[in-house]
Design a protein around this nucleic acid. Sequence first.
DNA 1: CAAATGACGGGGT
DNA 2: AACCCCGCCATTT
Length: 117
Amino acid sequence: MKDAAEAILAVVAQVPRGKVTTYGAVAERAGWPRRARLVGRVLAALPAGSKLPWHRVVAAGGRIALPAGAPARDLQVRRLRREGVAAPNGRVDLHRHGWRSPAGDLDRWLWSVGDEN
DNA sequence: CAAATGACGGGGT
DNA sequence: AACCCCGCCATTT
């Protein structure tokens, strides 16, 4: 599973400031569809002073996944806030801050490939 | 070895 | 919107 962790961390590292993505989306982009939980475990194992923007990863629907009361949760919310991403009620608006990979969307790609007919 | 446990997700009530 | 339930699966009990 070590390779998976590597791919996941690589994806998280790409999430730009002021944008957020979801566990499921990260898993998908990392090449491990439906393994959102794995993403959660990998991030949970992150060393204390990691430089990765783990705070830009939220649960489906924009929910902050960390349990209420967890110190890391507050840190995440503060960091997001500092980047201009508000999280009222422990929620971020994905329509507004959701990360759309720059012009390389998977759906778009799937459509443009099979048009050689 | 069986059961519980999550930084998850989606569908149903 | 708030829950509940179930599928998911490596780890921990």
